[in-house]
Design a protein around this nucleic acid. Structure first.
Lengths: 231, 231
DNA sequence: ATAGTTGTAAAGAAATTGTTAACTATAAAT
DNA sequence: ATTTATAGTTAACAATTTCTTTACAACTAT
């Protein structure tokens, strides 16, 4: 048996509701190729049903649909706390200013008029997803070590370790490219800044403190050159 | 001296960059009537400058501008962590599919083609703002602490605690992202505003008052960096 | 062995934050 | 307009933590 999809639903779940089967199929296909997991509905009531069943991250609603139009569906969903943060995009042939405004004010995140290029639609969806997914950007994980720039903390083997600022910056620098040897000069520039002049032993002392606090010897000295991080 | 504005910057700060003075003026006017605090720039470099100065929540960038076009400005800003979450909208006369896709992939949150109705633009901006302001909207519950932005009150262990305005805003900011370390600069910008200059000890004093009133030590000092909230 | 480099411990400098009280600004009330 | 209360800011100093230096030991390669 052949593998159907290389990519598992990494990107997110999307529900599309439209009464035109063609549109449903074209959009589905394109979103699936992008790695999204796609569900479909061909009228308003089905849309609500599917939404509750699959809890999609994003819902594309045709405005003109049988059995509850897109606006109605949006209103109903938005009333429930579970769909408070769900992204909703209206997709419609109605190229009318006041309708667009109504759609956006009803709680829609975007309003796109048909005919729409699948590529543009996908770009817009990616843009919206980017915004809700952008959480884990600042956490760096290397083996048992976890460095969080935002929380400014370091966890090693499930224990939090307190590093002072310079120590943290230094470790963050070294771990930003494991294995790479950072020259003493590079370290000075990155951690201390270009205009600060500190003595020769300062870096060593900080390295020592980090080694001490981490316990393990993750920082290797490359004599005459610099230091590198490796697990 | 007369009071200049009835409404203080409740809604949010917006920077508009466009080389056509007419557009700048029309959009500014409309956004200001909506309660937004508006800054303007007439070329790319000025846009970057103003962005750094005022730290807007949203930036509208004309694509075709002298001295760095909109895409370039976006790229430069997105490189800096401070502008990672800033909403960026491209506004342009280029009604071209591939350009739109490029804009969205560059890190833009929306791409709007001129001519644009001010009403629609505002609807779109409101929609984007709604999303980032959402968690700010209602009641925030963290452990025994309950913060109501609307009523402006704080309940801790079932007892209401009265916080003065600055204290409240500061606590609200810190709790908006528990665990995250807020730099002193960030705090100054968010709570005091970009143009206010206050002494070094002012933040400390307010932190102290909050700690005092809450009893528990929920606010942790990260020396040399800032403060973070954690239960 | 010698020169060059790095590791270590302790001390003291420097920077940052905590605390208090006094002062100023602002808004509400008389 | 003046008073009053409250909020916000500043200044001075204490407390604390972080950073740097110093002096010397240990190590490595020529």
């Amino acid at each position: 048996m052949q593998k159907l999809s290389v990519m598992e639903n990494k990107a997110g779940k999307i529900l599309i509701a439209d009464d035109e089967p063609d549109i449903l199929e074209i959009i589905s296909f394109n979103l699936q190729s992008e790695g999204y997991e796609v569900f479909t509905a061909k009228n308003g009531e089905q849309a609500i049903e599917q939404a509750k069943k699959h809890m999609p991250d994003l819902i594309i609603l045709d405005v003109m649909m049988p059995r509850k139009n897109g606006f109605e569906v949006c209103n109903i969903l938005r009333l429930q706390p579970a769909f408070k943060d769900t992204i909703i995009i209206f997709l419609t042939a109605l190229n009318d200013e006041s309708t667009e405004i109504k759609g956006l004010e009803t709680g829609g995140d975007d309003y796109i008029t048909k005919p729409i290029s699948p590529k543009v639609l996908i770009s817009r969806i990616n843009a919206l997803f980017r915004r809700i997914t952008k959480e884990t950007g600042s956490i760096l994980q290397i083996g048992d070590l976890q460095i969080d720039r935002e929380k400014y903390n370091v966890v090693y083997k499930n224990e939090e370790i307190f590093l002072a600022r310079k120590e943290f910056e230094l470790l963050a620098l070294l771990t930003s490219k494991p294995q790479k040897v950072f020259l003493r000069n590079e370290i000075l520039h990155q951690v201390w800044g270009t205009d600060v002049i500190v003595g020769d032993r300062t870096i060593d002392v900080h390295i020592r403190k980090i080694r001490q606090k981490l316990g393990a010897d993750c920082i290797t000295t490359v004599k005459g050159v610099g230091y590198k991080f490796q697990m």
